[in-house]
């Protein structure tokens, strides 16, 4: 597809004397499915092997984002045992309007210590929330964050339906100024200036590593290579939902550590593309088609009226 386009472009160039500059910049207008995803965008890799469940990240996020005081303080670890509804599979806590990130505990028979997993927005490379929002409230920034603009949001909650990771949450408690509540990668306060987000900085175990996404993939692969017994050979988020900026390493199958392993590897927009391409077809074809039907059906009508001499309105 790409080749075809470029060939056609060079044909234009050759045939009609366009300049090299033309071709160069035309190349940047790419065909679908051929995108470079902000090559310098940042990300975080979360290593489940290193996380001890201290909840420092939760506390840091709460402070950084000015979220309300939680019911139980951040050094209360009983929250791990309270099985609230929510989360994939129904067990464990999930993000909500009071917390952009949560840590959950998973006790697994095959390892001697419990596993902890931090979850927050994964800042997808092709965000489902963004593409499903009918007022374009989300933006994927070149730095890698997926940020949200509450000033245009209508509160339809389609983004929550669309997000494959169950991340955006709604401020249901507010009648007059509800909004979507979701991790924004500390974009305005930190990421914009190139600083790591609050939760990463607060982690005492270096379970969270901040860096360029391309470098993080290297780091992840290296850790797996160096300790093949300690990790499953998969980086969650490398391809999930078309790739995410936040990625995970785990010692056990990701499904056991509470990850949704059914998340498709294609970006969510791929499932909607078919319909989106039908829309302009219907818009352009239907008028002539049905006007034509009308003319065809009407000719008969006219003839009939000639015979019975009836009038129309």
């Amino acid at each position: 597809m790409k080749n075809k386009i470029i060939n056609r472009r060079s044909f234009i160039k050759g045939g009609f004397g366009g300049t090299a500059a033309t071709v160069l910049s035309l190349k940047s207008a790419r065909a679908a499915g051929d995108f470079d995803h902000y090559p310098d965008s940042m990300g975080v890799i979360v290593d489940l092997n290193r996380c001890v469940g201290c909840r420092s990240c939760e506390a840091a996020c709460n402070k950084e984002q000015g979220l309300p005081e939680p019911e139980k303080p951040f050094n209360d670890y009983s929250v791990f045992d309270a099985h609230e509804s929510g989360g994939h599979g129904g067990a464990g806590r999930r993000t909500d309007e009071t917390r952009y990130t949560v840590v959950n505990k998973y006790e697994l028979p095959e390892i001697d210590h419990p596993l902890y997993r931090k979850s927050q927005c994964n800042h997808c490379l092709e965000p489902a929330c963004l593409t499903s929002c009918f007022v374009n409230a989300y933006t994927k920034t070149p730095e890698g964050a997926v940020i949200y603009n509450a000033d245009v949001c209508v509160g339809c909650r389609t983004c929550m339906i669309a997000c494959p990771f169950y991340i955006p949450t709604f401020k249901y408690s507010s009648a007059f100024s509800p909004r979507i509540m979701k991790c924004i990668f500390c974009y305005d306060t930190r990421l914009k200036e190139g600083r790591p987000p609050a939760c990463v900085e607060a982690c005492p175990q270096e379970a969270l590593t901040f860096g360029k996404r391309v470098d993080l993939l290297e780091i992840g692969r290296k850790r797996i290579r160096q300790n093949p017994g300690g990790y499953v050979n998969h980086i969650y988020g490398e391809n999930e939902a078309g790739g995410t900026a936040w990625m995970y390493l785990s010692p056990v199958d990701f499904g056991e550590a509470g990850f949704d392993v059914h998340v498709p590897h294609e970006p969510v927009i791929n499932f909607v593309r078919d319909f989106l391409s039908i829309v302009p077809m219907v818009l352009v074809i239907w008028p002539a088609l049905f006007a034509g039907f009308h003319l065809l059906a009407n000719r008969k009508e006219q003839n009939k009226h000639h015979h019975i001499d009836g009038g129309e309105e």
Binding site: F35, P267, I269, V279
Partner: peptide, 23 residues
Amino acid sequence: MIKPMHTQVDYYTYIKGIEYLLC
């Protein structure tokens, strides 16, 4: 009408806008 696109989702927002305008 031509600007570099880095993500497919932005690309779609853009082409759909043009398509509907043409419609």
